Amino acid sequence: MTDYPRIKTVGLSGVLITFGEKMGEAANRATLAFRAAIDAEDWPEVRESTMSLVSVFLLVDLVETPAEAVIERTGDLLASRDWYAAPLPLGRTLWHVPTVYGTDLAPQLEEAAQVAGVDPDEAVRQISGSRVRVLTIGFAPGQPYLGELPEVWNIPRQQALTKSVPAGALVIAIKQLVLFTGATPTGWRHIGQTAFENFRPAAEKPFALNPGDELIFPAISAAELATIRAKDSSGDGGATREVLA
Rank of each mutant, 00 (worst) to 15 (best):
49 S>H: 00
50 T>M: 12
51 M>F: 00
53 L>P: 05
54 V>N: 08
59 L>R: 15
60 V>I: 14
63 V>M: 05
65 T>N: 00
66 P>A: 13
70 V>R: 05
71 I>E: 02
75 G>S: 14
77 L>C: 00
79 A>G: 11
81 R>W: 02
83 W>Y: 03
84 Y>Q: 14
85 A>G: 15
86 A>Q: 04
88 L>Y: 15
90 L>Q: 14
91 G>Q: 11
92 R>P: 00
93 T>D: 05
96 H>K: 10
99 T>G: 08
100 V>K: 14
102 G>N: 04
102 G>A: 12
102 G>T: 01
103 T>L: 03
104 D>N: 08
106 A>S: 11
107 P>V: 00
107 P>F: 02
107 P>N: 00
108 Q>P: 00
113 A>S: 05
114 Q>H: 15
114 Q>A: 07
115 V>G: 13
116 A>L: 06
116 A>G: 06
116 A>V: 02
118 V>G: 00
119 D>T: 07
121 D>I: 05
122 E>I: 07
124 V>F: 12
125 R>D: 14
126 Q>E: 15
131 R>F: 02
133 R>V: 10
133 R>W: 13
136 T>K: 04
139 F>L: 10
139 F>N: 14
140 A>Y: 13
141 P>T: 10
141 P>W: 14
141 P>A: 12
142 G>K: 03
143 Q>K: 08
144 P>V: 00
145 Y>R: 14
145 Y>M: 11
147 G>A: 06
147 G>W: 07
148 E>H: 15
148 E>P: 03
149 L>C: 11
150 P>W: 13
150 P>M: 09
152 V>W: 10
152 V>A: 15
158 Q>F: 07
158 Q>V: 05
159 Q>S: 08
167 A>T: 06
169 A>Y: 04
177 L>I: 10
180 F>L: 15
180 F>K: 10
183 A>R: 13
184 T>K: 15
188 W>T: 01
188 W>A: 02
190 H>Y: 02
